[in-house]
């Protein structure tokens, strides 16, 4: 029975979806219409509508018609997608750990050499990419020399994506920043924490060439960089192992450079001990960390924009937990009275 339904609708639906998106795609790329932007008023109305429909679901649940899985899925999608085009702003409070990280960056002089290490892959890009972009913007505006590397194979590619994006902005185009002079990407090296260990002796031993195969010594920015002692600050973005923990235990503890980090939310909780002991200068935790970093540096970007979706989705999850529990209590109560009748 289900099989028949599948074969009848699947293909037409697929074709319809593809055609519709093709039209939108072409139209948007030809700029037949502008970006979808919901004004503050419209956003509020939409939010009220969503809230109203949630109340309706609650009422239906009370009547004994709990929502199905797909309904929950739909709400999650709506809670995430709608805010992306909303023109609402919410007040973002900067937490002490983000503030500390910013202070650390602020204290650096013009032309400071900063080691940016990228230890994540596309899977965690949502949380860490906004941090990377803000970091590059800030670094280039302050005239830092940025040295990029990665302990994850995909890390340097993520760095390049963020770089391409930042450098295509008009503000940085006019600076005519040069590869090899203002920034360099050393690429990936396998060996996890042992790479950090050996970099303590000489960077060149781990990175004889940069990401593009250019010999280390022919790049002006790093010609005089022998090891960590020539680095003024290190910024690590990490999504797991190897990551911030290894950089702290092997790098900071042994070679004594200053380090700040950005982590995925799941990972952040494990980093607080290092923060308290001063081994880490500061930390950006997950999407909210990215938003706070944008807030304090005044480069409002994706982190801030995403934060609205983040808040929304949390509220939706909370509301569904409440609805689920209301239903549960009602159901239980119903059953209890039933029992009484039987007895």
């Amino acid at each position: 029975m289900e099989h028949g339904a599948k074969s009848r609708y699947e293909i037409p639906v697929l074709i319809a979806v593809v055609t519709l998106t093709l039209v939108i795609y072409v139209a948007r790329h030809a700029e037949w219409f502008g970006y979808l932007q919901l004004s503050a008023g419209l956003s509020l109305i939409l939010m009220l509508l969503v809230a109203g429909s949630l109340i309706w679901i609650l009422i239906r649940t009370l009547d004994g018609n709990p929502a199905g899985r797909r309904m929950v899925f739909l709400y999650v999608a709506v809670a995430v997608v709608l805010p992306l085009s909303m023109q609402l702003t919410q007040k973002i409070e900067v937490t002490p750990e983000v503030n500390q990280l910013y202070r650390g960056l602020q204290a650096l002089p013009h032309g400071a050499k900063v080691l940016a290490t990228f230890d994540y892959d596309p899977g965690s890009a949502a949380e860490l990419q906004p941090m990377a972009e803000t970091f590059f913007k800030y670094a280039f505006d302050r005239g830092f020399k940025v040295i990029i590397m990665g302990l994850w194979p995909q890390g340097p590619a993520q760095a390049n994506m963020a770089l391409t994006k930042v450098l295509s902005e008009e503000r940085y185009k006019v600076k005519s920043l040069r590869y090899g002079v203002d920034y360099v990407n050393l690429g990936f090296q396998s060996g996890n924490e042992f790479v950090i260990q050996r970099m303590g002796g000489e960077f060149k031993s781990m990175f004889p060439t940069d990401y593009n195969g250019t010999p280390y010594d022919s790049l002006p920015i790093i010609r005089n960089v022998k090891n960590f002692s020539n680095i003024d600050y290190s910024f690590n973005l990490s999504a797991g192992y190897p990551g911030t923990k290894e950089w702290v235990l092997v790098g900071v503890d042994q070679f004594g450079f200053k380090m700040g980090a950005g982590n995925t939310a799941v990972q952040t909780t494990g980093m607080y001990p290092y923060l308290r002991s001063g081994q880490l200068i500061g930390i950006l935790g997950g999407m909210s960390g990215a938003a706070e970093f944008e807030e304090i540096t005044k480069y409002r970007g994706k982190g801030t924009k995403f934060m609205l979706s983040q808040s929304f989705s949390h509220v939706v999850v909370v509301v569904f937990i409440i609805i689920g529990n209301v239903a549960y209590i009602m159901f239980e109560r119903g059953r209890a009275t039933e029992k009484k009748k039987k007895a």
Partner: peptide
Amino acid sequence: YTVMSRMSLLIGRMDFLFSDWLKLIK
């Protein structure tokens, strides 16, 4: 904590679909 991280992942994918691919959202 995990809910927080997971929502971020979805936001990232939705951002890909609506900004990078369809360019509907700035």
